[in-house]
Amino acid sequence: MSGVATAGGLRGRLQGFLLRPEASVIVVAVVLVIYFQFANVNFLTNANLETLSQFIATPVIIACGEIMLLICREIDLSVGQVFALAPFVMERAHGWGLPVPLAMAAALAVSGGVGFVIGLITLRLRVPSFITTLGMLFLITGLTLTISRGFPADTPGGKLLTNLMGNWGYAEICWAFAVVALMHIVLRHTRWGLHTIATGGNAIAAAEAGIDIDRIRMGNFILTSTLGGFAGLLEAFRIGSTDPLAGGSNIMFLGVASGVIGGTAIAGGAGTIIGGLVGGIVLGVLQDGFTLQGINAFTFDIIIGAAILLAMVANIHLARLRGGAR
C-alpha cells in the first residue's frame, strides 16, 4: 500500500493504472491494433473499421448484461436465443398492425419477460441460473422456430428508423457505446450497481444490511435478456432481415468472454463494464485482423479459443498479483 501511495507523479499514476482490473486488457488491445496495422495496411481504413465496429457491437452489448449477472454470481446462457427471438416478435407485432416503434417496444418487453421467467425459476424454485438458462436456451430456440416457421423474415421500418437502429455503418457501435456508458454509470454510481456488487460479494451480509438480494438478481436477469433482445433488433435492422438461427450460443459466449477477458471475476463480487468493452474490442480485433490476413476458419477458431484461455489465465494471475501488491 505505502509503495503505491508514496510513488506519486507519473510513476504512481502508471502503477495505479496497472492495478486496475481493466489494465491488462487495455494493454493487449493496443498491442493487437498496432500489430495488425503493421501486418496489414488495410486494417485502420474506414471500410475495415466499419466491419470491425460491427464485429464488436453485439458482444459488447451482451457483455454489459452478463457482467452485471456475473457480478451477482449468476449467468444467462440463453441471451443469444433471445437475440434471435426479439426481431421475430417485432416482425409479428408489426404484422398485427403495431407501428414499428411500438413493435420494437413489444419485442423488448417479451425479451425482458424471458429474463423475468428465468429469475422466477432461479430464485423461487432455487435452480442454479446455469441450469435454468440452459433449459431456456432450447426452449427459446424452439419458440423462435415456431413463430418464424423456420423462415427468415424481412425487418420492417422506414429508412430513417432503419438507419438509426443499425443500417448506417456505425449505428450499432454507437448504440453499444451508449449502453456501455449507461451501464458503467449504473454499476459505479448508482445504488443498483453497489447492491449488485454487494449481493455477489457476500449475499448474506447484503441481506443483513437490508438489501433485497432477490430483487437485485431478478433485475439483472431482466436487464440481460432485454439487452440481448435489443442487440438482436439492431442486428436485424442492420442486415434488413432476420434468421431464426441468428445469434445463438456463439454470441452469448463472446459476450461472457468479453466480460471475463475485461477483468470481471467469474466468482462474482467484482467487475467492470469498461473492461467488458475493451474485452469485446480485443475479440473483435482478433477476429477481424486474422480474417484480413486470410487465415482459414478452422485455424481461426483455434486462435480465438487460445486467446480467450490466455486472457483468462492472465487475468486470474494478475488479480492475484494485485491482491498481493496490497
Binding site: 445504488r191 456488487i197 448474506i204 447484503a206 438489501i211 463480487g269
Partner: peptide, 23 residues
C-alpha cells in the same frame, strides 16, 4: 445491529460499507 459475521462486503471500500443500503 452489529452482526456476529459483521455483514461487511470485502470487495467494497470502507466508506461504501459504512453506508451500505443507506447511501
Amino acid at each position: 445491529c452489529v452482526y456476529q459475521d459483521l455483514a461487511l462486503i470485502n470487495g467494497l471500500s470502507i466508506y461504501h460499507n459504512l453506508f451500505l443500503n443507506r447511501e
